[in-house]
């Protein structure tokens, strides 16, 4: 019987924790219209967005280069190496841009957010905000949630753009695919709404999920060194799984069935 009890207890625990997470997110998102928050949000955009630029750009470049290399070796067998441009661009815009950016974001910025908020909790800074009549949801959580939601789609677009240039570098400059066909077939194939906008939408969904998980895990962490280290690990694991799972669902909705 004990495993039934355990199963029940852990299910209740998970539902409660989801409820707390939901309350935290709504509390934070409702807190947008405050002028003071704009400055705090800009600061956080710098921390989670601008400081993630390097890793995003370098990863984008290499992933574009690898895609062009792999794509070329297959396409050239069919004499279709002219389609390298759309292959690289579509894969990046639809899938790799949003997904890899979200995964990198979870590792780079998500873990930092969890650790920061967890430590603020452990050092009683969150309690002290509450006692100073300042709502930590507005002061600490809201700017970080908004910064994540604003930064990630931009990072994903930068990732894709650099990736396409990386593909050009390998495909055109190195392997000799015609530059004209690389760009013109890409331009003819990539659709603004279907490919670019859907990619951005995916990225916005991932941004909400990753930032939400990261901040909630910090906010709900057991305020000990072990608790925070566990919360940070969970942020990266849960965010990555959520992004990959949601990506399938979103792809099915956006591209799967006509």
């Amino acid at each position: 019987m004990s495993w039934v009890i355990q199963l029940g207890a852990s299910t209740l625990d998970n539902i409660r924790s989801f409820g707390r997470a939901f309350l935290m997110l709504t509390g934070a998102l409702i807190a947008l219209p405050q002028l003071k928050n704009v400055r705090l949000t800009l600061q956080q955009i710098y921390v989670v967005g601008v400081q993630s630029l390097l890793i995003i750009m370098v990863s984008g470049l290499f992933i574009g280069m690898v895609m062009a290399l792999q794509g070329y070796t297959i396409l050239v067998g069919y004499g279709a190496e002219g389609s390298l441009g759309p292959m690289v661009a579509l894969s990046l815009l639809r899938e790799l841009g949003p997904v890899v950016t979200a995964l990198l974001f979870a590792g780079r910025a998500g873990s930092a957010l969890t650790a920061e908020i967890g430590l603020m909790k452990a050092t009683e800074q969150l309690s002290s905000l509450e006692m100073m009549a300042v709502d930590p949801l507005r002061r600490v959580v809201a700017p970080r949630v908004w910064a994540g939601i604003i930064s990630m789609p931009m990072l994903a677009l930068i990732f894709s753009a650099i990736g396409i240039l990386g593909g050009h570098l390998v495909g055109v400059d190195w392997l000799g695919v015609d530059s004209g066909s690389y760009w013109s077939i890409m331009q003819a194939t990539v659709d603004w709404n279907k490919d670019v906008v859907n990619g951005i939408l995916k990225s916005i969904v991932f941004a909400i999920v990753v930032t939400w998980i990261a901040i909630f895990k910090g906010y709900d962490a057991v305020p000990t060194s072990e608790g925070i280290s566990q919360a940070t690990t969970q942020t990266v694991v849960y965010s990555s799984l959520a992004v990959l799972g949601l990506d399938f669902v979103l792809t099915a909705l956006m591209f799967g069935i006509n």
């Binding site: 050092t123 009683e124 800074q125 309690s127 002290s128 509450e130 006692m131 100073m132 009549a133 300042v134």
Partner: peptide, 26 residues
């Protein structure tokens, strides 16, 4: 709570602000 203050055991100063900004915060 604006009429109540609490001095936490750890001090709970905001680590990203100077002493001046901490006091000016409220």
């Amino acid at each position: 709570r604006k009429a109540i203050s609490m001095l936490f055991q750890s001090g709970a100063l905001f680590t990203d602000m100077s002493v001046f900004d901490n006091v000016a915060f409220a």
